[in-house]
Design a binder for these strands. Structure first.
Lengths: 250, 250
DNA sequence: CGAACACTTGACAGCCCTCAACGTGAGTGG
DNA sequence: CCACTCACGTTGAGGGCTGTCAAGTGTTCG
């Protein structure tokens, strides 16, 4: 276990193209794939170059910092955490990737992954060879446009948590962010599992784990939510939205 | 003054293609433009679709948050500041764009600029219509690759300052970052002007302006640098590198 | 059943923000 | 040439948020 399962072709790789069309309705490329304008032959080519990888299990590593960059991946199920470890051994979580989202876009720049990626629970992936998808993007304007969009979106997302927000604001923005992204893929916006440890949340929000505990308790005591271990239910969105508004900018 | 000068075609627009080749040696696209593999005709097309804009002066606005996204721009001279203003009127500086760097990449996602951009001093720009450069990118693999790289790079850069670093670490990383980026374009790495106000630096590093003053004074008293108003000279890089190392990751 | 781990809770201290006052340089008009 | 103004920058005092350290509780897994 804990071996790099992603860059290599996994023994469990599926190539079941019938199912692919079903899975893809919630994938990051769906807008490109399912758009009216997309050439039928090109759509076929995209589905041919995808490799289905998984299932990976909690703790399985997709890729390590410094690994040569070969592919990006769309999460079909589960949660992927990306992070770096500084020389003091402190972990900095860069992001959590939910179903339908992409992993590896930040590796394009220097041909090596600039971070580690690990599965937090049972994860299914669609793996796209980047050189191949780049070639296809040149032939399919809708796909190139979608790639540009997704890259651009990540620039903005990375900048969100950079502000000097309070612990309450950060936590509210984090929870609502999860809620919205899950809702966009058809999951319940008010009741979901925190697939990551408190420590992971802390390292993502740049807080101490103790502060994460305290804020969650404070929110629960205020009746904003109910939290039991990894199980979370949002009871009163309004105050959370108010807290998160300056961060989420809406 | 302070009118939006960027999206419209500026009256001072130049189309002097002879000079273009000279300016472009330090531009963000130079790697794509000047690469051996790049098709001569395609290189010509890139130079045809560029509009030279400027000079803009300190305080001139390139674009405002919410403006429809039409073009990205490469800075040829001067400094551009990008920022958002929250409902409390507080300014959050997203970045400073030096000669050779691009502005507007984060606007691709939703077809509107998500931030404001303003010139901090006398600025010269190369303006690229994004739809046109996207079409060209589909025909020129080297250009597409360069665009992907530049987008990917900005994702990583945005994540750098997100950590919970100390004021000293942030300032050291900021100054060394400027130094390196200027050096990469042929400017002196040890002696340069801070083209932005202390308040801008503070809003970028998420510090109070007073803290910026105090840290600079502390660095000067320690003999690490000499600073007089906007004029800055790095005297001892080693301690600064040590401070910034965990942020710059090297 | 024991051990390791995740999480919670409490006490304390430190860094940086806030508030306030002062200094300084550039531009302006007399 | 000089006084004036104003924005920018500096310096000082005090307080609040959150990190650190420590101990305790609960859960999972071997």
């Amino acid at each position: 276990m804990n071996t790099t399962a992603f860059p290599r072709t996994d023994p469990h790789t599926l190539s079941d193209d019938g199912d692919a069309l079903h899975f893809c309705t919630t994938c990051a490329f769906s807008q490109a794939c399912l758009s009216e304008g997309m050439d039928k032959r090109a759509l076929g080519e995209l589905h041919v170059l995808v490799e289905h990888v998984g299932p990976l299990h909690a703790g399985d590593i997709l890729f390590r910092e410094g690994d040569p960059f070969e592919a990006i991946a769309a999460v079909r199920a589960g949660t992927v955490k990306t992070f770096v470890v500084d020389r003091d051994g402190h972990e900095h979580v860069l992001g959590f990737h939910l179903p339908g989202e992409l992993v590896g876009l930040n590796a394009i720049d220097d041909d090596h992954y600039p971070c580690n990626a690990v599965a937090l629970d049972t994860v299914m992936l669609c793996r796209f060879s980047f050189p191949k998808i780049a070639v296809l993007a040149a032939k399919v304007p809708g796909l190139q446009r979608q790639l540009f969009r997704l890259l651009s979106r990540d620039i903005g997302r990375a900048a969100l948590l950079a502000g000097d927000w309070s612990a309450d604001q950060r936590m509210a923005a984090f929870l609502l962010g999860l809620s919205r992204r899950l809702a966009a893929r058809g999951f319940s916006p008010n009741r979901f599992a925190l697939t990551m440890a408190r420590t992971d949340i802390a390292n993502y929000l740049r807080l101490a784990p103790e502060t994460v505990s305290r804020v969650l308790k404070r929110f629960q005591d205020a009746g904003l939510l109910r939290v039991d271990r990894r199980d979370l239910e949002i009871l009163d969105r309004e105050p959370l939205e108010a807290l998160a508004a300056p961060i989420l900018r809406d």
